[in-house]
Amino acid sequence: MAFGDRLEKLDRRWIFLVVALLVLIPLLWPLQLPLAVSGPAKRYYDAIEAVPEGSIVVLAGDYDPASAPELVPMTRSSVTHLFRKNVRIIALQLWEGGPPLVDAILHEVGDEMGKVYGVDYVNLGYKSGREAVMPSFGNSFSRTFPNDYGGKPVSSFPLMRQADNFGATALFVNISAGYPGTKEWVQQVQGRFQVRMVSGSTPVQAPEIYPYLQAGQVLGLLGGMAGAAEYEKSIGVPGPATKGMDAQSSAHLFVVFLILLGNAIYFSRRRAQQGRA
């Protein structure tokens, strides 16, 4: 049997096993591969860096546990960067699974940096309605979210008394896994309320965000774990995304190898068929 035929009949579980090993080994024994910060990630960092100290930023964490490995590191780094600049955060989520993840990050980082809930940050929690929530939120934070994630009236928090719409904020950070997410926030809020906006997104969604980046509707973009790692490097706080990049790179090399191998077999067979004809 020819090599190509044998590969065609290969049990795909061997490929799963190789991918698993290629991910597992670099996690246990890091390769320390170099990591360069790309333009979109640098622009994300610059946009947050440009936020004046003491101002207020809205952070929408539109994701659930399925995207946690990529988006939790991004959220954690963004919150760390913002708190380091003494920027106050109003957080919200439009995915049901998001509130516990974002709430845990806000409290963990907030406690580490001595921030006070209600004064330095508030988590408004979840609201259903997808893009219908967005313009409503843009018009009035408190009318759309009368209570915070814990069920307390938002009027009881000093931070929420200082900002009730995007006019009182310096930046909008959206970290999203899909629908509703960055695309919808750009459509419903960015242009309508003239909001300065940055986006962290899953890689699946990232190609759809690039046109907004090119048009200036989104000022910076983090795409997946690579974007999260680049941002961790920018703020000087290496985290799980940085530690996962060796595994990511080795698995990618294997996928590239498989694509090249598949193409080589395809073209060699085609040439053989043409030779027979």
Binding site: L27, P69, P203, A206, M225
Partner: peptide, 28 residues
């Protein structure tokens, strides 16, 4: 390419959980 990155990231996330939170043989 982005989709591959996304799927591998999910696998990395689960392995990190197993190695760190569960077995405690690596810290991430």
């Amino acid at each position: 390419g982005f989709t591959v990155m996304s799927r591998i990231s999910l696998l990395i996330g689960r392995f990190m959980f197993l190695l760190d939170d569960w077995l405690g043989i690596a810290r991430f």
